[in-house]
Design a protein around this nucleic acid. Structure first.
Lengths: 307, 307
DNA sequence: CTGTGTCATAAGCCCAGTTTATGTGGCCAT
DNA sequence: ATGGCCACATAAACTGGGCTTATGACACAG
C-alpha cells in the first residue's frame, strides 16, 4: 500500500472516487422516478440494495444527493448537479456499449457496416444508439478499416453499408455525402503558431515538419493533396490518439479532423491555427456497391446519418 | 429473477455489459504503456490482477483487445477502437469527479466558485479539469444557483468568483464576457416545425405555448426579453433536463441553450428550428465584487475560461 | 386504525477482484 | 550456451462490496 506512482490528483485512481456505472444508473433512475424503491424495481434489484447503494455513493462523494421522505425521494440541489454529470458518463457508456456490441456480433447480424477509423471512432457509436432507439432488434456488426478495406468488404458482399472519408470514392461503389469534415492545424497552447495574428500560409505548412498519421490514412491523403505534394513528417504515428498525445506534449503541430479534437479545443489542451489559401475540407460519404441501393436496416441507418 | 421491466435492449443493464471504470482505466494504461505489468504498476495493483481483469473484459465484450507477447502487449484493431470509446467514458468520469469534488470541499478550499446552473452543468467540470492540470493542488468548492444567489455569495465574501448567464449584471459586481451562448428553438424530430422550409417568425414563437424553465431562470429571462413580453407556458419545469425529456417525448417545442442540446441535436433526438427576427443570443459572464479583481486561483480559473 | 406506500436496519451469502507464489517463454548480454 | 531479465499465465486463498431476505419505523389515505 506504500505504492507511489500517482499520475493522479489525490490518492486512488478514478474508480475509487467515482461511483461505478451501476450506481450512476441507479441515481438516474431515482431522479426520473422520484423513488428509491421504484428505481430498484426498474433495475431489477431490491429496495434495500438501492437504498444502501445510494447511501454509499453519498458517503463516497461526501455530498447528500437525495432527500428521503416517507412518501418519496427527491434530489437535493447538489444531487441534481451530480445527476447531470452522471448522465454524461452513462451516455458515454451507452455509446461504448453500442460500439462494443457491434464489434462482437460478427455472424448473426442483420446489418454489417464497414467504416473508416475516424467515422467508427467518433460518429458511429452515436448512430448505433439512435438506430437502436428506432429499431431495437437490429443487430449490427462493425468492421473498421481504410477506404480500400471498406470497398473490398462491400464488393465481396461481406458488408451492407460502408462509410469512407477519403477524397475519392473507390471504383465500383455508389455514394452519398452525409457530412462535411474540416481538417484543422493544431498545436499545443504554448507553440509559436498559437500566438500568430495572421493566418498560416499553405507554403509554411508544407515547409514545416508535422506530426502525421501513417500514409494511406484518409487524413493524410487529404493533407497531401491540399499541399499539392507531400507533407513533411516529423514523426508518423498509427492512431489519431497517438498524434493528439504528441501534439499536447508539445512535440509539434499536426493536422487533424475537427471531429477528433473538438473536446481538446474546448478545454484548451490544443489550439487551432487558421490557415489561408488551402482547402482542408473533405466529405464524409456513405458507400455501397453500384446499383445495390441500401434497403432494410442499411437504409434505416443511412437515413439517420444525413443531416 | 423473472423481473421484466426492461427499458433496455438485451437483458441486464448497462453495468453488466460495460466494463467498470477501473477496467477501462486499466485498458487505457495498457494502450499507453504497451504492457500489462506496466499498467498494473501505474494503477497500484499487481500484474496478475491486471492480466485477469483484461481477460475478463475481453470475455465480457466477446472481443480480443490485446495481443500478448513475451515482450509486451499491443492493442488489436478492435482493441484500439474500444480503447478510444473507453477514453470518452473515462473523460466523462473525470469531469464527474472534478465536479463532485468541488461540491464536497466546501470549507478548506482555496477557490470558492458560485455559478449559474447552465454553466455549472455544462462548462465548469471541464474548466475544473483544466485547472487541476495546471494547478494540481487548488481545492475548489462550487455552489450553483441563479444570478441573485451568485451575487449574494460574492458580496458576502462567501465566493471568490462567480459565473452568470442572465442579461443584466447584478449591481455591485464587475464582469467580463467569457463566452456567447445562443438559445435555440428545439422540437422532437416529428414535430411540424421540424419540417418547415422557412424560418419561424418571432410572433409565431410568442403565440405558441412552450415547454419552459421556471421564471427566474436565466434562459427564461432572455426568452421573455427577446419576445418583448412573456412567453406562453405549456408546462413549466424546474430543470433543463426535465425540459429536454419533455421535448423528446413530443410534448411540444422549447427554447434551450445550445450548450444543453448539442448532444441531442447531433444524435437527432431533437431538431433545431431556425428563427427570424429575434436575437436569442446571450453572454456568459464571469463576475466579482466591484473593485476586487480576481487574484490567485480565481485569476487562474478566469484565464482558463476565456476563448 | 388498518392498508399501502415509503425508506432504514440487520444478518448472512456470494462472487469479482485481489494478493502471493510459481511456471513458461522470448530476448539479450556476458 | 547460459544465466538474468522481462513479460505474461496459472493456481489457490482471502477479502469486501453488493446482493437478498426479513423485519421495523414512519406517513398518509381511506
Amino acid at each position: 500500500m506504500t505504492q507511489a506512482a500517482e499520475g493522479q490528483f489525490r490518492a486512488g485512481s478514478l474508480s475509487h472516487r467515482v461511483p461505478d456505472l451501476g450506481a450512476l444508473e441507479l441515481l438516474l433512475a431515482v431522479a426520473r422516478l422520484g423513488s428509491l424503491g421504484g428505481a430498484a424495481r426498474e433495475l431489477g434489484i431490491t429496495q434495500p440494495a438501492a437504498s444502501s447503494r445510494i447511501r454509499s455513493m453519498e458517503r463516497q462523494l461526501g455530498v447528500a444527493l437525495v432527500d428521503r421522505s416517507p412518501r418519496g425521494s427527491r434530489l437535493t440541489d447538489a444531487g441534481a448537479l451530480v445527476t447531470d454529470w452522471a448522465r454524461r458518463v452513462v451516455e458515454a457508456a451507452e455509446a461504448f456499449d453500442a460500439g462494443a456490441q457491434a464489434l462482437r456480433d460478427r455472424r448473426d447480424s442483420r446489418l454489417r457496416v464497414a467504416a473508416s477509423m475516424t467515422i467508427a471512432e467518433y460518429l458511429l457509436p452515436g448512430w448505433l444508439l439512435a438506430l437502436r432507439a428506432q429499431r431495437p432488434d437490429t443487430a449490427v456488426s462493425l468492421l473498421a478499416g481504410n477506404s480500400t478495406v471498406v470497398a473490398e468488404r462491400l464488393l465481396a458482399d461481406e458488408a451492407d453499408l460502408g462509410f469512407v472519408e477519403g477524397l475519392t470514392v473507390p471504383t465500383g461503389l455508389d455514394s452519398v455525402v452525409i457530412a462535411h469534415d474540416n481538417l484543422i492545424v493544431v498545436t499545443a497552447p504554448g507553440h509559436v503558431w498559437s500566438r500568430r495574428r495572421s493566418p498560416l500560409e499553405a507554403s509554411e505548412l508544407a515547409a514545416t515538419p508535422l506530426i502525421l498519421r501513417e500514409k494511406g490514412s484518409g487524413t493524410r491523403q487529404v493533407l497531401d493533396a491540399a499541399l499539392g505534394g507531400l507533407a513533411r513528417p516529423l514523426i508518423e504515428l498509427s492512431s489519431t490518439t497517438a498524434v493528439k498525445a504528441a501534439v499536447v506534449s508539445g512535440a509539434g503541430p499536426a493536422v487533424l479532423s475537427e471531429l477528433a479534437v473538438g473536446e481538446e479545443l474546448s478545454m484548451r489542451r490544443l489550439v487551432s491555427v487558421p490557415v489561408a489559401g488551402v482547402s482542408l475540407a473533405r466529405d464524409l460519404r456513405a458507400v455501397w456497391p453500384t446499383g445495390h441501393r441500401p434497403v432494410g436496416p442499411a437504409r434505416d441507418l443511412l437515413s439517420l446519418t444525413r443531416a
